[in-house]
């Protein structure tokens, strides 16, 4: 197996790693670095449970090869700070049930709110359209993102 050397910054930490050519980013994160907050729901780009932010954009880490992450900055769910308003809004709005979609949802929401603090409902639904949830029916997730946007703008979230 051919190994490739990559340099990658994950959650603010620099790594220099030798990775197999066919290793997926999700396996690097989960199996090698034990960042298991990134989930695998389908392995083929359908569900978004494996969402991470790479170079400011959300990607399905099951569709990215580890070596493609060379020289990039990656944020996984473990890289979101403790008292993050998006995470708290998800908890308070009841947007979390089984939780398997949650890390991906939170990151998709973050990626939206990093660019747009005043999203319309449609923009929110569009932003999480690559993330499937089988439990909540989406409405609570949408209200959680709305609430987080409002709190980030300085409102009280109500």
């Amino acid at each position: 197996m051919i190994l490739k050397k990559i340099e990658v910054n994950i959650n603010g930490r620099d790594y220099c790693l030798d990775v197999e050519e066919n290793l997926r980013l999700i396996d690097l994160l989960r199996d090698k670095l034990k960042l298991t907050g990134t989930k695998e729901g389908c392995g083929e780009g359908e569900c978004g449970a494996c969402t991470v932010i790479m170079g400011g954009k959300i990607v399905n880490s099951c569709l990215v090869l580890a070596f493609q992450a060379d020289k990039s900055r990656i944020i996984t769910i473990e890289g979101i700070e403790e008292d993050d308003v998006i995470k708290n809004s998800f908890i308070e709005e009841g947007a979390v049930q089984c939780g398997f979609c949650t890390p991906g949802m939170v990151l998709a929401a973050k990626s939206l709110l990093d660019k747009n603090l005043n999203p319309t409902e449609e923009e929110i639904r569009e932003a999480i359209s690559g993330n499937l949830c089988r439990c909540t029916g989406y409405n609570k997730i949408v209200s959680a993102v709305k609430k987080a946007a409002k709190l980030k703008r300085g409102g009280d979230g109500e």
Partner: peptide, 11 residues
Amino acid sequence: NKIDAKDKVDG
């Protein structure tokens, strides 16, 4: 709040 929601949002 759901008792295990925090762990789930934290991953």
